[in-house]
Protein backbone atom coordinates (compact mmCIF):
# COMPACT_ATOMS: atom_id res chain seq x y z
CA UNK A 1 0.00 0.00 0.00
CA UNK A 2 1.70 3.22 -1.05
CA UNK A 3 1.43 6.53 0.75
CA UNK A 4 -0.70 9.20 -0.91
CA UNK A 5 1.35 12.39 -1.08
CA UNK A 6 0.03 15.83 -1.99
CA UNK A 7 2.07 18.97 -2.41
CA UNK A 8 -0.03 22.13 -2.66
CA UNK A 9 0.96 25.76 -3.20
CA UNK A 10 -1.42 28.73 -3.16
CA UNK A 11 -1.33 28.86 -6.93
CA UNK A 12 -1.83 25.19 -7.76
CA UNK A 13 -1.76 21.55 -6.82
CA UNK A 14 1.85 20.62 -7.59
CA UNK A 15 1.83 16.93 -6.90
CA UNK A 16 -0.77 14.36 -6.02
CA UNK A 17 0.36 10.78 -6.33
CA UNK A 18 1.12 7.57 -4.49
CA UNK A 19 4.71 7.34 -3.26
CA UNK A 20 6.71 5.01 -1.02
CA UNK A 21 8.09 7.44 1.53
CA UNK A 22 8.52 11.16 2.10
CA UNK A 23 11.13 12.83 4.27
CA UNK A 24 9.96 16.19 5.63
CA UNK A 25 12.16 18.80 7.37
CA UNK A 26 9.91 19.60 10.36
CA UNK A 27 10.62 22.59 12.61
CA UNK A 28 11.54 20.24 15.44
CA UNK A 29 13.46 17.75 13.38
CA UNK A 30 13.20 15.83 10.15
CA UNK A 31 10.70 13.06 9.96
CA UNK A 32 9.96 10.36 7.44
CA UNK A 33 6.40 9.42 6.59
CA UNK A 34 5.50 5.95 5.41
CA UNK A 35 2.08 4.53 4.75
CA UNK A 36 0.02 4.13 7.94
CA UNK A 37 1.70 6.93 9.89
CA UNK A 38 -0.19 8.17 12.94
CA UNK A 39 -2.18 11.42 12.46
CA UNK A 40 0.28 14.23 12.87
CA UNK A 41 0.56 17.93 12.16
CA UNK A 42 3.75 19.95 12.01
CA UNK A 43 5.20 23.14 10.67
CA UNK A 44 8.12 22.85 8.28
CA UNK A 45 11.28 24.84 8.18
CA UNK A 46 12.56 26.03 4.81
CA UNK A 47 14.41 23.12 3.29
CA UNK A 48 14.19 20.13 1.03
CA UNK A 49 11.49 17.49 0.91
CA UNK A 50 12.75 14.12 -0.27
CA UNK A 51 10.32 11.88 -2.08
CA UNK A 52 10.99 8.18 -2.66
CA UNK A 53 8.68 6.95 -5.36
CA UNK A 54 9.53 3.33 -4.62
CA UNK A 55 11.63 1.51 -2.05
CA UNK A 56 15.32 1.75 -2.91
CA UNK A 57 14.90 4.30 -5.67
CA UNK A 58 16.89 7.52 -5.60
CA UNK A 59 14.89 10.26 -3.82
CA UNK A 60 13.53 13.25 -5.68
CA UNK A 61 14.34 16.52 -3.93
CA UNK A 62 11.84 19.37 -3.79
CA UNK A 63 12.89 22.62 -2.09
CA UNK A 64 10.04 24.27 -0.17
CA UNK A 65 9.57 27.48 1.78
CA UNK A 66 6.93 28.39 4.31
CA UNK A 67 5.52 24.95 4.64
CA UNK A 68 3.18 22.96 6.77
CA UNK A 69 2.61 19.20 6.83
CA UNK A 70 -0.42 17.19 7.80
CA UNK A 71 -0.58 13.45 8.06
CA UNK A 72 -4.03 11.94 8.20
CA UNK A 73 -5.64 8.64 7.31
CA UNK A 74 -5.86 9.78 3.69
CA UNK A 75 -2.13 10.43 3.38
CA UNK A 76 0.40 13.22 3.68
CA UNK A 77 -0.43 16.76 2.62
CA UNK A 78 2.24 19.44 2.46
CA UNK A 79 1.07 23.03 2.10
CA UNK A 80 3.95 25.25 1.01
CA UNK A 81 3.95 28.91 0.04
CA UNK A 82 6.87 28.51 -2.34
CA UNK A 83 8.06 25.41 -4.16
CA UNK A 84 11.18 25.02 -6.23
Amino acid sequence: MPLHFELVTPARLVLSEPVYMVNVPGTEGEFGVLEGHAPFTSTIKDGVIRVWRSAGAAPEEIPVKGGFAEVSASGLTVLAEHVG
Binding site: E28, P39, T41, T43, G66
Partner: peptide, 24 residues
Protein backbone atom coordinates in the same frame (compact mmCIF):
# COMPACT_ATOMS: atom_id res chain seq x y z
CA UNK B 1 -12.45 12.04 12.36
CA UNK B 2 -12.07 11.76 16.08
CA UNK B 3 -8.52 10.48 15.72
CA UNK B 4 -6.00 11.94 18.12
CA UNK B 5 -3.72 14.17 16.08
CA UNK B 6 -0.29 14.99 17.39
CA UNK B 7 1.00 18.50 16.96
CA UNK B 8 4.58 19.53 16.62
CA UNK B 9 5.19 22.16 17.98
CA UNK B 10 2.05 22.58 20.13
CA UNK B 11 -1.31 23.81 18.80
CA UNK B 12 -0.87 27.46 19.75
CA UNK B 13 2.54 27.80 18.16
CA UNK B 14 1.32 26.24 14.93
CA UNK B 15 -1.77 28.41 15.00
CA UNK B 16 0.32 31.54 15.53
CA UNK B 17 2.32 30.63 12.46
CA UNK B 18 -0.63 29.58 10.34
CA UNK B 19 -2.83 32.62 10.95
CA UNK B 20 -0.69 35.09 8.94
CA UNK B 21 -0.50 32.44 6.26
CA UNK B 22 -4.26 32.08 6.30
CA UNK B 23 -4.57 35.85 5.91
CA UNK B 24 -2.22 35.78 2.91
Amino acid sequence: DGAVVEYEPDEETILAELLPRYLR
